[in-house]
Write a protein that binds this DNA or RNA. Structure first.
Lengths: 127, 127
DNA sequence: CGTTATGGATAACAAATGGTGAACGCCCTG
DNA sequence: CAGGGCGTTCACCATTTGTTATCCATAACG
């Protein structure tokens, strides 16, 4: 994580059934490990720290990778997907990272059925 | 948004039940997301920044799209309508963007019933 | 009233954006 | 040195958004 000269805020975050432990680089859902890699964890952490706020890709990027995000860099997207996949594996039906088209992503732990009983499988993007 | 070399004024605006967060490109009505797209949001923002002032189409256009608005370009109108629709969806009865015939638009958060109990459905244009 | 100007409403089409799956290269470990 | 885990990058495709044209309603005006 890129915070030049800064310490990691180390208190655990709890959102819904998800617990995030910065010092341990661990994310737990109802006590079960999500199994995120370091990068994946960082992306989730950055988002979760600003619950319910829309973060631009560039902001997420600079906080995790440091520096300026190159034009058309898809790193953030790819990692968001990886995180989503692993979270979905442990917490089926829940949604945590919401897409804001043309802007970025927003963290909000959303229980199943909230947001409508979608018969469709695909993702829905917020705005 | 076109502000060559300029920074986005980033403090939230609040008008009536409407909150506008430039940084997040988010508009909220009583906490509920309006769901505007980036362009739609920009149009609303430009208007809201000059609450109660009538802005000419050309001004709105140049601030959002940049450059000079071409003769008979209806972009502004189309987006005003889109914004109105989405706002109406979340805040029934309220009016935010008022038409000034032959001139342009004016932002003013107006609660229901203010402005008369119109039985008619259509729009009313100010002057 | 009849005509013209102006804005509202839709829809068709084009472009931008993000989801996905997979290939690669690196590094570590057995 | 083979295998596995991880981060990075690419390419393809579905969806969402932006742009433009057209038709319709209404205001302005003689």
């Amino acid at each position: 994580m890129h915070q030049p000269g800064g310490h990691e805020n180390s208190f655990a975050l709890v959102h819904g059934n998800l617990e995030i432990r910065p010092e341990e680089i661990q994310a737990l859902v109802d006590g079960r490990r999500v199994g995120l890699t370091v990068r994946e964890f960082q992306v989730l952490l950055v988002l979760a720290r600003r619950e319910d706020h829309v973060l631009r890709r560039g902001d997420i990027y600079s906080q995790v990778w440091g520096g300026q995000m190159k034009h058309r860099d898809r790193s953030v997207d790819v990692f968001v997907r990886k995180v989503r996949t692993k979270l979905a594996h442990v917490a089926p039906g829940w949604a945590y990272i919401h897409t804001h088209f043309g802007v970025g992503y927003r963290f909000a732990a959303t229980p199943p059925s909230a947001g409508g009983s979608n018969i469709a499988i695909g993702n829905v993007s917020d705005r």
